[in-house]
Design a protein around this nucleic acid. Structure first.
Length: 155
DNA sequence: GCCAACGTTGGC
DNA sequence: GCCAACGTTGGC
């Protein structure tokens, strides 16, 4: 069954425009270094799942597009590369600590759904993103929440 | 740039 | 195993 997720990225690092201009509009989602998010990437996300693409730590935090999962969890090889910024000496290639998935752009929203707008929407009250101190970079979204966000974009 | 919230590290 | 110190996230 299709599941729904939200993935955060700082647009200065990797934005929706970067995804749009990627080959086949597809990218690997590497560099997640949080165990809870790792578990999600490794164990839960399946091909065909849908993703809200969220820009964080920027002028206007917002959901800016949607993506679909085209490859489920596999080891984050950047953790093994000594010179890479995502290198982690504790990750053993024989038993990787970190995982990634591949996502493909579905649509870039004409109207981003801002964090502010989402906070004003009663239907999104329970959304993980909106909880106090929520820092998870890969987080579950309910179907109803996913649909509500998309509806808000189509104004 | 500030700072609250959170996760991780490491001494004991 | 506790918990203080530290580093990071991310909204404002």
């Amino acid at each position: 069954m299709t599941k729904y997720w939200l993935m955060k990225t700082e647009p200065t690092t990797f934005s929706i425009d970067d995804l749009e201009t990627s080959e086949e509009q597809t990218t690997s989602w590497e560099g997640v270094r949080n165990y809870q998010a790792r578990n999600t990437l490794r164990d839960e996300i399946q091909v065909g799942d849908r993703v809200l693409f969220y820009h964080s730590a920027c002028k206007e935090p917002a959901v800016v597009g949607t993506a679909t999962v085209v490859r489920s969890g596999y080891p984050d090889i950047h953790a093994f590369d000594r010179r890479h910024k995502y290198f982690d000496p504790k990750s053993d290639p024989a038993k990787p600590t970190w995982y990634m998935v591949d996502i493909q752009l579905e649509q870039k929203l004409d109207t981003p759904v801002t964090l502010k707008a989402m906070r004003g929407q009663a239907k999104l009250e329970g959304m993980v993103l909106l909880q106090k101190g929520s820092r998870l970079s890969v987080q579950p979204v309910k179907k109803k929440e996913f649909d509500t966000v998309l509806k808000m974009a189509a104004v």
